[in-house]
Design a binder for these strands. Structure first.
Lengths: 235, 235
DNA sequence: GTGCATTGATGCGCGTCATGCATCTTTGTA
DNA sequence: TACAAAGATGCATGACGCGCATCAATGCAC
């Protein structure tokens, strides 16, 4: 039989795409994750060095020492491989959110989750930021980035519903709040990150997390207190 | 010299892509708009009939009686041509917003603008809805749709800043409110439209504008009154 | 440990995509 | 009417994305 690794083409991207924190399964699964990671890192590295447009899928596959054909078993396009780091980050963001105490207001918990993810200093944490910078430099990736975020809306919405003891999205009694809140929060995050990257780009190398925290607080604060009345920095 | 019609590849999409309401210029410009419209309509029509994946760029070009090469002078991909209607709708949405009296609260004006656009019953108005339905049926188009909306955030943010007499985004004194409000509003619109289409899909043919209006009001209301306290239908 | 079924990796081939380049045609204007 | 600018078209080409057949590694039962 043929090979059907991708969980469904674009849907692979739409359904996550990050490393699913494999629960210590067999060697098979581990190797798959390794291959995926190798391709993801190769794509990111080469794209950062030469620019996304100047890198071919073949080069990425060679760099990762994987057959060209195999690349397409994992990602359906170059762009998808590059933003895979972001998908992973988004999934971790949601995991962090789920771990917050339910006594925290929703947006507060979201804020903490974001900062937790951004404060990671390990290899993966760096990749998130590097991928974001790359997206800023390559307009081709913008649609992909947006799709990655949008793909997590549903998951975050469910987490939010759980967090506040609200009916899950689509269930009877659902006010639509969880989904709206999730998409608004992720959008705000995207806007803030974009601004932050623009400023950080020309300044210090080590990501200025303090500045990011302040900007996130501002945005979250505006979302929390209602968008119909502008201009308030610290309520 | 070569041909450089597109205002800049993907940026064409990112900077709008709709018909710029040509100010009665020469025949040259009129013909360009006609060509663009022909391609846009052909792409939409064929995609609706056979599915986006089953339509080639060549078929679209043939249907519009345009050379294949010329197609790429207007759109850099099949998907871009299909969602061009949405770009036009988004631009008109902003135009409508700008026309609202400044006495209206921001989100109220946004609501009115949305309903105005959705109530259009002419050919273009139908195209908006048809394109939205197509996107729902073809995951490939989702990234493009998101990009179209995101591309209008800046424009809407500026309109909002004007509406309330706030410094333009990036200017000194900018609180970040206009951009956040714009992106949140557009996101909410996207979420609401998605839900609405899901429901409308299986029901009446003539778009149920009343239902849409109610759903928009709910979402806008939640945005307006703050996202940190859930569950309120009619404040 | 051996054999079998499953699943992923790889090679091959093909149709499509997307763009650069050269050329021809149309349009606007002096 | 002649000329310059701008768009449309044809041609050629490299990359893309995937179906299909095959090979190899893995997991499992016995």
């Amino acid at each position: 039989m043929g090979t059907v690794v991708k969980e469904a083409g674009v849907v692979q991207l739409a359904s996550g795409g990050g490393e699913p924190a494999s629960p210590a399964v067999g060697r098979r699964e581990r190797k798959k994750q390794a291959t995926r990671a190798a391709l993801r890192e190769a794509a990111l590295r080469l794209s950062l060095r030469h620019g996304v447009a100047n890198v071919t899928v073949e080069q990425i596959a060679d760099e990762a020492d994987i057959a060209l054909r195999t690349f397409f078993n994992y990602f359906s396009s170059k762009e998808e491989a590059v933003v895979a780091s972001l998908a992973a980050a988004a999934q971790e963001l949601i995991a962090r959110f789920r771990a917050r105490p339910r006594t925290e207001p929703v947006l507060r918990a979201f804020r903490e989750a974001v900062l937790a993810v951004m404060n990671e200093s390990d290899a993966a944490g760096r990749d998130h930021v590097r991928a974001l910078q790359l997206v800023r430099a390559a307009p081709t990736l913008v649609p992909q980035q947006l799709a990655v975020l949008a793909a997590q809306e549903q998951a975050l919405a469910e987490a939010i519903a759980e967090h506040i003891g609200h009916p899950a999205p689509g269930r009877p009694g659902d006010t639509g709040y969880p989904l709206l809140c999730a998409s608004a929060a992720l959008t705000a995050l995207r806007v803030v990150l974009d601004q932050w990257l623009r400023q950080t780009a020309a300044s210090a190398r080590p990501p200025d997390t303090a500045l990011l925290a302040r900007q996130i607080d501002t945005a979250i604060g505006q979302l929390a207190s209602g968008l119909d009345h502008p201009g308030h920095d610290a309520p």
